[in-house]
Structures are given as C-alpha cells and as structure tokens.
C-alpha cells in the first residue's frame, strides 16, 4: 500500500489573550491508499483542529505554524488557504463530514441543490448530469424515493438521513480522502452503526481512504485498520487496531480501554475512569502532558521533555519512556 497523505510535524496554534494554545503540537500521521484510520482522543485534544489544518480551514486566531501536509506529491501548506488549488482539493480530493448533521446543511437550499453544487463546481457537470448523479448518490447512501427527495429541504430529513446526505455530498466528487469528524457523535447507537457501515462501504466502493475522528474507541474498533491516539495536541500512541486493543502501551491508551466495557473480558471487572481532567493547553510545558494524570508516572516524566514516538515493532509506536 502506498502512502496517500503524509502529515509531518504539523503544529497549529491559537494566539489568545491568555497565551499561546498549541492545539496541534508536532503531529505526524500517515494515511495509506484505501485505508481507514481512526484518530481517537478526548474533547479538546486537537483531533478536529488537526484535520481542519490539513484542509486549511483554520480561521483566526488559529494559525498553522509548522509542518508539511504531503498529498499527491505536493505540500498542501505551500498553498494559500483561499487559493484556487486549495479550493480544488477541498471537496474534490479531500472531503470532510462534520459532527452535527442538523446544522451542516444549508436550511434554505434543497438537498438536490447542495448535492449538485459540488458536482458542477469540481467536475464541471451540466445541471441535468449533476442531477442524475445526485439521484444515484442518494440511492447509494440508502435514501428511498431519491428522485423526489432531491427537492426537499434539510428540515424534511432526520438527523441520520442528513448525515447520509452529508456522506453523499462528501463522496460526490470522488475524493481520495474522506475525513469524518465525529460523524456519529450526535446520533443514537443504531443510527451510528448504520452510518459507519455505510461509510465503510461507500469508501471502499469509491476506492477512497477514510479518517474517522472520534472520542469513542468502540466506533473505530470495528472499522479502522490503524489507530492514532491523541492527547493534548500530541499523538501518544499509534498502531494497527489489533495492536492497540491487544497490547496498549501508553498509560493513556490503557486508561481509555479500561473505562469501556468489553465482551471478551472476565466477569466482574470494574470500569476504571482516568482520574483528573485534560490539561489546559495554554502555555503548555514541554514535559509529558499526561504525566499529572498518569498512574505509571516516573520522576523524569515531570522534569524531562516528553519522549518522541518510539517504535516497538509491528508498526506500533508509543510516546512514553521505556520502563
């Protein structure tokens, strides 16, 4: 498998009154062709910002201060955020689905209009061709009566159906990468499962790669090939899904796994929450951000700079000192 998206040392910071917030701090990750990766972490750990940075959709006071986003032989950060090249990539090559299906569609335009808009924009389709394609897309994402529903407005759709429409819009121009930013967080569990299944099918149908951003390890367990665990703007552990679940190395990953129930465990195990709260990201020290909450903390964790990701074999990397 060849590397499709190679993000290197990406740093995005927000300059606020109180100080500099490094929402994404020296983050590197790779996405292979036709691969599904999961980006997991708590709220405010920089998952979404890292993906928005890839798309250059960070608005003031946020700023991408360092890094490379290599995609199809180009570094996307070389382009201006509002340049024609970047606009062609957004939607055309890399598409994004957002968390809130209820507000992600323009309430004043019909579903059909919003679907065809991108086809006309990126693929220069005629109105008729775009409409035909839109019907096809709606059918593919499982909306019945697609033909007539094109003329409906978003409020005629339920949350799950809107997210289906978002998936259709996201994949309409045949992008190489689909970034799903907490795509199922606002939906109930049955709809969640439906949509994840749909996304997996659609992505493989279109030979695209998928990035699932989520705070829920359960969501990615079934679908992701590889998982990146993020904490306070850093990637603390990465590896194949099997490795992460079977052999978690970072205390944070272990903590995450300990606080969700599993079917294959012994009876009577208590769920253990991670103590404390994620740190405030303003003017962070360079030592390990998780150290204050860590149950396996060493003296050096608080004094020395956080260790870089260390290869422990099997494509498994962990950002923790060797014990």
């Amino acid at each position: 498998m060849s590397v499709l998206l190679d993000v290197k040392n990406l740093t995005t910071q927000f300059n606020t009154e109180a100080g500099i917030v490094k929402a994404v701090n020296d983050v590197s990750f790779q996405l292979n062709e036709q691969e599904i990766i999961g980006l997991v972490g708590e709220s405010g750990c920089g998952k979404s910002v890292s993906q928005l940075s890839v798309m250059q959709l960070i608005s003031a006071p946020g700023k991408i201060t360092n890094g490379e986003v290599n995609f199809e032989g180009r570094n996307l950060l070389d382009y201006e955020s509002n340049s024609d090249e970047m606009r062609a990539i957004r939607g055309g090559k890399i598409a994004m689905i957002f968390q809130e299906p209820m507000t992600s569609l323009n309430p004043t335009l019909t579903i059909g209009r919003q679907l065809t808009e991108m086809l006309e924009l990126h693929l220069n389709m005629t109105k008729e061709a775009a409409r035909e394609r839109a019907v096809e897309l709606l059918k593919q994402v499982g909306i019945s009566g697609a033909e007539s529903r094109l003329d409906d407005y978003p409020h005629n759709f339920s949350g799950g159906m809107r997210q289906r429409v978002m998936i259709a819009i996201g994949l309409s121009c045949n992008p190489r990468i689909l970034i799903a930013d907490e795509p199922t967080t606002a939906l109930d569990v049955t709809t969640q499962a439906q949509l994840l299944e749909l996304m997996k099918d659609m992505v493989s149908k279109y030979n695209a790669s998928l990035v699932i951003v989520t705070h829920n390890l359960g969501v990615v367990a079934r679908y992701a090939h590889r998982i990146y665990i993020m904490y306070a703007g850093n990637i603390v552990e990465s590896g194949t899904t099997e490795e992460i679940f079977a052999n978690p190395q970072h205390p944070y990953t272990k903590g995450l796994l300990k606080c969700i129930p599993r079917l294959d465990e012994e009876k009577g195990r208590k769920l253990v929450p991670i103590e404390g709260l994620p740190p405030n990201l303003i003017n962070m020290k360079s030592s390990c951000a998780f150290a204050p909450r860590c149950s396996e903390r060493l003296e050096r964790c608080l004094t020395e700079a956080a260790p870089p990701l260390r290869d422990i074999g099997n494509g498994h990397y962990v950002g923790c000192f060797e014990k």
Partner: peptide, 9 residues
C-alpha cells in the same frame, strides 16, 4: 454549513 461549504471548496 458555511464551514461544510468551505470544506467542499
């Protein structure tokens, strides 16, 4: 939806 629109180029 404006952000979504921007994300679609």
């Amino acid at each position: 939806y404006i952000l979504a629109e921007r994300s679609m180029g």
